[in-house]
Amino acid sequence: MKHYLFLLIALFTFSIGFSQDQTYVKGVIINASQGEPLESVNIVNLTQVIGTTTNAEGEFTLRAQANDTLHLSYLGFKSIKVRVTNDWIKFGTSTIQLNELALALEEVVINDFRLTGILEVDIQNVPINNNYRYSISGLPSTGYEAGNRSNAITKALGAIFNPADFLYKMFGKNPNEMKKLKQMKQDDEIRNLLASRFDREMLTVLLQVDRVDLDEIVRQCNYSADFINSANDLQILDAISECYEEYKVLSRSRKKR
Rank of each mutant, 00 (worst) to 15 (best):
N55G: 06
S251I: 03
S73A: 15
P175L: 00
E39Q: 09
N125K: 14
V218L: 11
I228M: 07
F14C: 10
L72C: 05
S33G: 01
E242I: 02
R149K: 14
L206M: 12
Y74V: 01
N130T: 03
I9S: 11
N130D: 05
V44L: 12
Q48T: 05
N125R: 13
F60C: 00
K90W: 04
D188G: 01
K182L: 07
G147H: 10
R219G: 01
N86T: 05
K155L: 00
I96W: 01
N125S: 07
N67Q: 08
V108I: 12
S15N: 11
Q124Y: 09
H3S: 06
N162G: 05
E107P: 02
F91K: 15
K90G: 03
T69F: 10
K155G: 02
I9C: 13
T52M: 06
E107Q: 15
G76W: 11
Q220A: 14
E107G: 05
N192C: 03
Q124M: 13
N45V: 00
D112G: 02
S230W: 06
V212P: 04
A104S: 02
F12C: 13
G147T: 08
L115S: 04
R257E: 09
L157N: 15
T52W: 11
N131Y: 07
A152W: 14
D68P: 01
D238H: 11
L193T: 13
R114C: 01
S253V: 01
S224I: 10
T53E: 15
S196L: 10
Q20F: 12
G35N: 11
I118Y: 14
I9E: 09
D215H: 04
L203A: 04
R83G: 06
A195P: 02
A64I: 01
E100R: 07
Y247M: 08
D165P: 03
F113E: 12
Y24R: 13
Q22K: 15
I110M: 04
I153S: 10
S141Q: 12
N45S: 03
K26W: 06
R149Y: 14
T54G: 02
G172F: 08
L237P: 00
L167V: 07
Q22G: 03
L72F: 09
P175T: 01
N151G: 04
M178E: 02
I236C: 07
D112W: 06
L214A: 06
L203Y: 07
L72Y: 07
I153V: 15
E177V: 00
I89F: 12
I80Q: 13
S94V: 04
E246I: 01
R114V: 00
G35V: 07
G147L: 05
Q97G: 01
I29M: 00
L103S: 00
T13S: 14
P127N: 14
I123K: 15
L115D: 06
I153A: 11
T23F: 08
F198G: 02
M184D: 06
D112H: 11
K180D: 01
F18H: 11
T142S: 14
G92K: 13
Q186W: 02
L5F: 02
K248L: 15
Q220L: 08
F14W: 12
V49N: 08
T23L: 09
V84G: 08
K78R: 10
G147F: 05
G27Y: 00
S137N: 13
Y4Q: 09
K256W: 03
